[in-house]
């Protein structure tokens, strides 16, 4: 056991750089996915077909083909067109597009589940469409979509482990190095999995805080379950309402 601890201490700098790569992939992927989700999610519920149809095709395409296929596409196929992408950028693009497509459905569904009276009231006050969306609809939809988006963010973090397949030195890679150093699979992978778990857990706690903040702004009470509850919803359900209700708190739609 002492040998393991010694090996772990010796491997700490490597593990730290592995965590750093994993975090870079996660943050880059989440930011890209969020932008894509808003653009595609809004376009997919547009009444005009030149906006709606391409958005739907992109969403179905990136949801329907596997993450690894998309990663290999950026990694192996793009260079054939003369576009040589850095491995990290390949990872961020694949993760962002794949999870962004899932998140677009969450955005679309959450906006649709804002009660109809809110839309009508905003129209009655003759707010411009942009103002209506920004000031009335989005804050309410945002509170509904946070739990589902947080789940997707955790799934994206777990998806970053595919970087190991294109030989990036991420946390999974460094965990396997530790296994080779110690010869102790249980110890090395235990360390690696605990680090992944802690990052996931931190993300869930952050999302819970965000949700409480978003609900307070709407004058709604804090969700049941409190700070340390872990909520899971279904990433593929198109309508986030039943999925949100599946969690411990759920999104109370007034």
């Amino acid at each position: 056991m002492n040998d393991n601890i010694d090996a772990l201490i010796a491997a700490l700098p490597d593990l730290r750089s592995g965590v750093f790569i994993t975090l870079q992939l996660t943050v880059g992927g989440v930011v890209l996915a969020f932008v894509i989700a808003i653009v595609l999610g809004l376009a997919a519920r547009s009444p005009r077909w030149p906006a709606r149809v391409p958005a739907r095709v992109l969403i179905e395409f990136f949801r329907g083909t596997s993450l690894l296929v998309q990663l290999f596409w950026f990694f192996y196929v793009m260079p054939l067109f003369g576009i040589q992408l850095d491995a990290l950028l390949c990872g961020v693009l694949a993760l962002g597009l794949n999870y962004g497509a899932y998140a677009a459905e969450v955005v679309r569904g959450s906006i649709n589940s804002v009660p109809k009276g809110q839309w009508e009231a905003a129209t009655a006050l003759s707010l411009s469409p942009a103002r209506k969306l920004r000031k009335i609809i989005w804050p309410q939809a945002w509170a509904i979509m946070i739990p589902s988006l947080a789940n997707l963010a955790v799934m994206l973090l777990k998806g970053t482990a595919v970087a190991y397949i294109i030989l990036m030195h991420d946390l999974t890679w460094e965990t396997d190095q530790l296994r080779q150093d110690t010869g102790n699979t249980f110890f090395a992978y235990g360390v690696g999995m605990i680090i992944y778990f802690l990052i996931s857990y931190a993300m869930v706690l952050g999302a819970n805080a965000l949700e409480r903040h978003a609900k307070r702004r709407l004058g709604q009470g804090p969700p049941k379950g409190g700070l340390f509850s872990v909520r899971i919803t279904d990433k593929a359900t198109t309508d986030p309402k039943p999925a949100a209700n599946a969690g411990s708190g759920g999104a109370g739609v007034a």
Partner: peptide
């Protein structure tokens, strides 16, 4: 269950494979 759900499937596969 919570632990399994919040760690990547890739690392779980490798762990089981080498165990």
């Amino acid at each position: 269950m919570e632990f399994i759900r919040m760690t990547p499937i890739v690392i779980q596969l490798l762990f089981v494979f080498y165990t």
